[in-house]
């Protein structure tokens, strides 16, 4: 019962957040003249200025702000975010949709590796506090935390693609790409690792995996420190609590005390931090995809930024804001499930 009320309250809080996210993007749009904003809805460069004025009128781009917002949000809700000039004049929403499966694939492979590695190292570090392994883990995670994403990506590429000639950058090798884009390969999900299996062509999956390993490693290196740090400090806190002493006095082995009793409690702060992890990943994806020539939404956004493609960058920011808000909502609800205490509040 408490649980339901909590979820309802949290979902209701989500509405003002959504409003805020759209309002902020709308506010940023106001930095541009109506003419500039109008050109976001026109393919290519218009030869006739009349075209622009017609768009301004049609889309109410010079109306009072609240009216403008109304028409803008209606268009956004119907999926019209303007034209992405940096992506060959296709609509921004289409460009985003095309990129999402690739980015999703990357993130889905990264999250478990970040979380499991982070939790494992965090526990190890806390249990061996102030011993050599603690110092080593901490130094390495701080190093990862301090690495510029593009720099670590370039180093990885140079070593594994350049030096060892493993594969080349991109999502697939040329050969696999040819097969994937051929008409008799059905792209059910546009996630290559899965489509490979669905089409019964396992080598496509393996090829895709080979290409995704390094980007995943890069994202892991730069984000794992966050989890390590939180896990370490929450583990230290839990290990000093009374119930740990009780558990030891019961005669439980250290393994059970750490991995059953302390870990479960120490994981709670890790759940709350996974919102921040999502933010880190969404950011890391932009640069990692760019360097690895991995064509997801991050790649799209980076190229749009380079060409000052306004509707694409803002459309991407809006999308990310929404994804991030939903992620935070999920985190909060998960948190309530894991920690029985929060439900009573």
């Amino acid at each position: 019962m408490g649980m339901k009320a909590y979820i309802v309250r949290r979902v209701l809080l989500f509405i003002p957040t959504l409003l805020g996210v759209t309002l902020l993007i709308f506010a940023i749009l106001q930095f541009f003249t109506p003419e500039e904003r109008a050109s976001a809805y026109i393919r290519g460069t218009p030869k006739n200025p009349d075209v622009i004025y017609r768009v301004i009128e049609k889309y109410h781009l010079d109306a009072p702000l609240h009216i403008q917002y109304y028409f803008w949000i209606t268009r956004v809700l119907s999926g019209d975010l303007g034209i992405a000039k940096s992506a060959g004049n296709i609509p921004v929403s289409v460009a985003l949709l095309k990129g999402i499966p690739a980015t999703f694939e990357l993130v889905i492979f990264s999250i478990p590796s970040i979380i499991f590695l982070g939790i494992y190292l965090g526990i190890k570090s806390a249990v061996n506090r102030d011993k050599a392994s603690d110092h080593i883990i901490r130094i390495f995670s701080i190093i990862g935390w301090s690495l510029p994403t593009f720099w670590s990506a370039l180093i990885l590429i140079s070593i594994f693609y350049g030096g060892l000639g493993w594969v080349s950058a991109g999502r697939l090798s040329n050969e696999a790409y040819g097969v994937v884009t051929s008409p008799n390969f059905i792209r059910y999900t546009r996630i290559n690792t899965i489509d490979g299996i669905l089409n019964g062509q396992l080598w496509i999956t393996i090829d895709a995996l080979k290409h995704i390993v390094l980007p995943v490693i890069n994202l892991t290196i730069i984000s794992v420190a966050l989890i390590v740090r939180v896990m370490r400090s929450s583990m230290l806190e839990e290990l000093s609590k009374g119930y740990i002493l009780t558990a030891k006095a019961k005669g439980l082995s250290n393994d059970v005390v750490i991995n059953k009793h302390a870990k479960r409690n120490a994981l709670i702060p890790v759940v709350t931090i996974s919102g921040v992890l999502t933010a880190g990943l969404l950011t890391g994806v932009v640069i990692t995809e760019t360097v690895f020539n991995y064509k997801g939404i991050g790649y799209f956004a980076a190229h749009a930024a380079l060409q000052m493609d306004i509707p694409s960058v803002l459309g991407f920011a809006l999308f990310v804001g929404l994804v991030y808000s939903v992620a935070n909502l999920i985190v909060d609800i998960t948190y309530a499930y894991i920690d029985p205490r929060i439900r009573v509040e």
Binding site: G242, Y243, T246, H261, N265, P340
Partner: peptide, 10 residues
């Protein structure tokens, strides 16, 4: 402290 001696999540 009985509340501290019991693990809150089990």
């Amino acid at each position: 402290e009985p509340s501290a001696s019991l693990n809150p999540v089990y």
